[in-house]
Nucleic acid binder design. Structure first.
Length: 481
DNA sequence: GCATGATCATGC
DNA sequence: GCATGATCATGC
């Protein structure tokens, strides 16, 4: 180690020295700052892979390795690069999840979080660059270099995620893994999904698709957003924030100690005392007054029950939890279907199921607060809340709807998309401001904007299976019927 | 009563 | 101005 140290432009046993050197990347491109021969360099405008390799090789001079040790082995720091993209509404956001290490199904259950994940990925040096497919990877601008260590409360959630993934592997359910069961850390697919991308797994004969641990895009956004520049090194760090800054959204942990062993049960406990209460009484109990007429009334009330005064809960934003309120009729079935974002007919035909917006949203963890009008014309009551991930078989049903929609759009058969009677899980229906709110199809004609919906009955089933109805029956028995 | 087509209301 | 979450209204 000390031999090669002589020739490095930084001291690889001194974290400060590495950070000082890394800080010089800020605002530059690899061509400007790394020392490699552009003439003989590989070319690709798809920066993925090439950018990271060039950064390691021609800037930090790290030998390519696949060993389970951090890149800066003497200081226990892992080097990562990740693309960011510009969006219309949200500014610069993460383009994709940040992939960490491959999950070895055969050995993960012999490992401990501390000795494996934390050791290899507990401390990161992340180089954020602006993704741009019009120019070479070495011409893409570096936006920020962040020295990242996880705040303890985040690390705890990550450890839970790691345990969730490890447990599924141990149970012989590696083939069911997806990103939708976890919060910050995800098990993302690695490879194109061909036969060669499948691996053996313990306690099951079913081959499981190769997956890697990754930080979800939502968490990458958090890192990008919340790190502030350290004057001395020019590198951004999270430390200033931990001490005295408050993020844009309020944490669910505000004013409450996290003594439970589980993030979700901690969240759910906040709701216990409101179960069975009328909305108006909940407002009184909390000491707030919301606009009952607002369509987001129950959503706002839910946040307030968690003690959140802002528009969103920080941990929900950082883990991309999809919160949607459910409204039940007196007979315990859902009042309405559930809409998702409208789709652009032409864009949809360019996607595959795996890259589709619909699949992406279904791969999220959901949070459902449930309200009910217990009897006709009665006051609305809070029934409870629960977290949910879409079961694998239901995902397959949704895929059928998506694929059917794709085919029919291609054949200009847009008036005959799947209805709620034709599929157990989802259907397609208009979702527009009015009938003039249209979108162009591949045939050049304009059709009213539509989106995928969860069937009303499917939502009823989700609620039934959640168990929350039985849970409150006791306390509500006199009120309800 | 419910599915389906259509639209509302808020916030960014 | 528009996406988004949510709900209305008609007709079978």
């Amino acid at each position: 180690m000390s031999d090669s140290n002589q020739s490095l432009p930084y001291n690889d046993s001194d974290e400060k020295s590495i950070l000082l050197y890394a800080g010089k990347l800020n605002g530059h491109t690899l061509k400007e700052i790394a020392s490699f021969d552009i003439e003989s360099a590989r070319t690709s405008t798809h920066s993925k892979g090439f950018f990271g390799q060039a950064l390691e090789e021609f800037y930090f001079y790290i030998k390519n390795n696949n060993i389970a040790a951090p890149d800066f082995i003497n200081v226990g720091m892992e080097l990562k690069s990740t693309p960011m993209k510009k969006t219309k509404g949200k500014g610069i956001v993460s383009k994709e999840r940040l992939v960490l290490s491959i999950i070895d199904y055969m050995t993960i259950n012999q490992l401990e979080f501390e000795g494996s994940f934390k050791k290899k990925n507990g401390k990161l040096l992340i180089v954020f660059y602006q993704s741009n497919n019009d120019v070479q990877y070495y011409d893409q601008k570096i936006l920020k270099v962040v020295h990242w260590t996880y705040p303890p409360e985040d690390l705890r959630i990550i450890e839970e995620d790691w345990n969730t993934i490890s447990k599924m592997v141990t149970e012989g359910r590696s083939h069911e893994l997806s990103e939708r069961f976890t919060h910050y850390l995800g098990a993302c697919t690695k490879g194109m999904g061909h036969e060669r991308d499948y691996r053996e797994q313990p306690n099951s004969d079913i081959p499981a698709r190769q997956r890697a641990l990754s930080l979800k895009s939502s968490y990458v956004n958090k890192i990008f957003r919340e790190s502030t520049q350290e004057e001395y090194t020019g590198v951004f760090t999270s430390e200033a924030l931990i001490e005295n800054k408050v993020g844009a959204f309020q944490s669910v942990f505000s004013n409450r100690d996290w003594t439970d062993d589980n993030f979700e049960s901690f969240v759910l406990k906040a709701f216990d005392k409101f179960i069975g209460m009328k909305c108006s009484d909940i407002e009184k109990e909390i000491g707030i007054s919301l606009n009952v007429a607002s369509k987001s009334y129950r959503s706002q009330l839910t946040l307030n029950m968690m003690g959140i005064k802002t528009k969103k809960a920080k941990e929900f934003v950082d883990s991309d939890i999809e919160m949607k309120t459910i409204f039940l009729k007196p007979n315990n079935t859902s009042q309405e279907s559930m809409s998702f974002s409208y789709f652009d007919y032409i864009e949809l035909t360019k996607q595959t199921w795996e890259t589709s917006d619909f699949c992406e949203v279904l791969d999220k963890r959901f949070f459902f607060p449930v309200f009910q009008r217990p009897k006709k014309n009665g006051d609305v009551v809070f029934k409870g809340a629960f977290f949910w991930s879409m079961p694998y078989l239901d995902m397959c049903e949704a895929k059928i709807v998506w694929e059917d929609t794709l085919e029919k759009i291609k054949m200009s058969d847009i008036d005959n998309l799947i209805t709620s009677k034709q599929n157990r899980v989802a259907h397609v229906r208009p979702h527009a401001r009015n009938s003039k709110d249209t979108c162009m199809a591949p045939n050049g004609q304009y059709y009213m904007k539509k989106c995928f919906w969860f069937n009303r009955n499917y939502i009823s089933d989700i609620v039934k299976n959640s168990g929350i109805l039985n849970k409150n029956q006791q306390s509500n028995l006199t009120d309800l019927y």
